[in-house]
């Protein structure tokens, strides 16, 4: 059962008296894409920096590949590829030279440079000076750098931050390939639930430095819960039809809203509504947002302090707004 690639126990880091990371227990099994989710300032980057030994935890233990980071740091790092916050690069050098500076330290064959450039699709621009790269290209170079040493574990901190939609898609596809093609375990952090949802197989949610949820993606989706909205010609008559099938919707602005329907129920419901001569305009699924999820997970009392902390500047109106949404 100890096939954990990363395991932390009671990890804690204090900055000026506040705990940026507090009692954090990460558990990342091999072969997973682990989505490390939380709002900005939740302690994701601080945690990742501790995992890489860039900063020292005030207390707690980090184990990677079952080894203690304090004792076997260099051995561990040899098998880890990472990209922290924004990509690091030497602007005056081209992509090949950038990778060469790293290659000489990792001591891998020169052919790896061209392999990783091909993996991230930078072969064509390899001889251009990196200063002139777009953010997306720099990010891909960062991922190429992380892959250079053929790592078993890839740690990517907000790899899609600041990218345009096509850039995000490219990076996401790249990450999704890793476990399948090369057996790499990936830890990827993000502040966007939708983002993590599209690539992660398991997920950990942090808030205020604490892990508030850690489980598989399907379990999170179950927990987040989704609602089916059906817009139709006569909503009130529709409610009656639905009740006959044993579904009890609420009404929202001329739409029926259902909770926890499976595919079969939706199919039967739509068929019944059509039979009853309703015109169906829209059938859509709505997920709860990350904020809603936090509210559910932390409970209303905790949520109140959460929100006021996240939005310190204009906290009050936003907190009220969110609570109203939650109450709906």
């Amino acid at each position: 059962m100890t096939d954990m690639m990363i395991e932390t126990r009671n990890l804690m880091k204090k900055y000026k008296g506040t705990r940026a990371v507090d009692a954090l227990n990460l558990a990342i099994p091999q072969g997973e894409i682990y989505g490390f989710l939380g709002p900005n300032g939740a302690g994701k980057t601080t945690t990742i920096r501790m995992l890489l030994g860039l900063i020292k935890p005030d207390s707690g233990v980090v184990q990677i590949f079952g080894k203690d980071l304090r004792k076997d740091r260099l051995q561990i790092l040899r098998r880890v590829g990472s990209l922290v916050e924004y990509p690091s690069y030497y602007g005056h050098l081209n992509a090949i030279e950038n990778l060469e500076t790293i290659r000489r330290i990792l001591n891998v064959p020169k052919s790896r440079i061209h392999e990783v450039l091909a993996t991230v699709g930078l072969t064509k621009d390899a001889k251009r000076v990196v200063k002139g790269y777009s953010l997306g290209m720099k990010q891909r170079l960062g991922i190429a750098t992380a892959l250079l040493g053929s790592p078993e574990l890839l740690i990517l901190d907000e790899p899609t931050n600041g990218l345009d939609p096509s850039g995000i898609l490219e990076i996401r596809e790249l990450i999704k390939k890793m476990p399948k093609e090369q057996g790499i375990t990936v830890l990827v952090s993000s502040h966007l639930l939708s983002e993590v949802e599209q690539m992660a197989s398991s997920v950990g949610i942090v808030n205020q430095g604490r892990m508030i949820f850690q489980d598989s993606m399907p379990n999170l989706q179950r927990k987040a819960g989704s609602e089916i909205y059906i817009a139709l010609s006569d909503a009130e008559a529709g409610v009656v039809t639905a009740r006959e099938l044993g579904c009890f919707p609420r009404l929202d602005d001329g739409r029926l809203v259902f909770k926890g329907l499976d595919n079969g129920q939706i199919a039967r419901l739509v068929a019944a509504l059509v039979d009853a001569r309703h015109s169906i305009y829209r059938v859509e699924e709505r997920r709860k947002s990350l904020e809603d999820l936090f509210l559910t997970m932390t409970g209303s009392g905790g949520a109140e302090t959460d929100i006021s902390r996240i939005d310190a500047g204009h906290g009050a109106p936003r907190a009220v707004g969110l609570r109203r949404e939650a109450a709906q």
Binding site: G53, L54, L74, L77, S88, Y89, Y90, L106
Partner: peptide
């Protein structure tokens, strides 16, 4: 200089080098 400019400290210190 280049480590300061491009955020290179994080990268180079995450490599297996003391």
């Amino acid at each position: 200089r280049y480590e300061h400019e491009g955020g290179g400290w994080k990268q180079i210190l995450s490599l297996p080098i003391s």
